[in-house]
Design a protein around this nucleic acid. Structure first.
Lengths: 127, 127
DNA sequence: CAGCTGTCTTGACGTCTGTCTAAGCAGAGA
DNA sequence: TCTCTGCTTAGACAGACGTCAAGACAGCTG
């Protein structure tokens, strides 16, 4: 597969800045929904949600597949398939280093998703 | 019983308070993932993401099916099916009032999902 | 009561998803 | 070079999902 072309209509998944007002504040346009829904979909599986968490909370911000696989009662290819889904959703990045492959979370899109779901539009309260 | 040491095994989707530390802060347990993943899955469809936004951002906090349906190129039953999915995921509530049915967002679970995805929890470590 | 309107349920159908086994590719080490 | 380990890809299959058409149900209006 060649490198995917940026299919981003309104949302730049690579940006670190929040892109959209909260769900509850303004109606999400169809284009934005089409771009962000796959990310939610990718998190819509318990295995992938745990994988995402294990990667994002790992020491040094990255996790080796060799550490992820034994945490589940699933075969290696199945874990690899889920990681590919997370990768294609833009939620993680993969890098091969020697024999092992390391995955790293992309905080930008996580922030965007969280911002979209946030109910408190302007947390002006004291921190 | 206030929350003490075993908070994360079961998640109360009806609670208004945040339930879980962010994804990136602590590894999500399998039980929590099993409970929250369906909510993300429900948001993983562009139509449902827009429906959710239309309901949550509607005047008075509720939206009539008669207003939701014509916004899409889909048949009534299909919209109804998506609304049922959102309802079963705990994201919205439905209420029949006379001829029409009104849907209302549940901010509690939205807050929980947003909290789970939040990347900047509180940089000031407390312990 | 009869008729009409609005919404939900049922049943069906094609597609997508999650999982596996088997095979292929990339590095490290002897 | 050959071999071993780690990860991904390919192919297959059961089950779930998204969609629609048809019918059922609830409530309003004569």
């Amino acid at each position: 597969m060649s490198k995917q072309q940026a299919p981003l209509l309104l949302v730049d998944l690579n940006a670190d800045a929040p892109c959209c007002p909260p769900l509850a504040q303004r109606r999400v346009p169809a284009e934005t929904a089409a771009v962000l829904a796959p990310a939610f979909k990718a998190l819509g599986d318990p295995v992938r949600l745990q994988l995402m968490s294990m990667i994002a909370s790992a020491e040094g911000g990255e996790a080796c597949v060799c550490d992820l696989t034994p945490a589940f009662d699933l075969t290696g290819p199945t874990i690899s398939h889920h990681l590919k889904t997370l990768r294609e959703a833009g939620l993680v990045d993969a890098e091969r280093r020697g024999t092992w492959v390391y995955y790293r979370a992309r905080p930008g899109i996580l922030r965007q998703l969280a911002g979209l779901l946030s109910v408190e539009p302007a947390p002006s309260s004291q921190a």
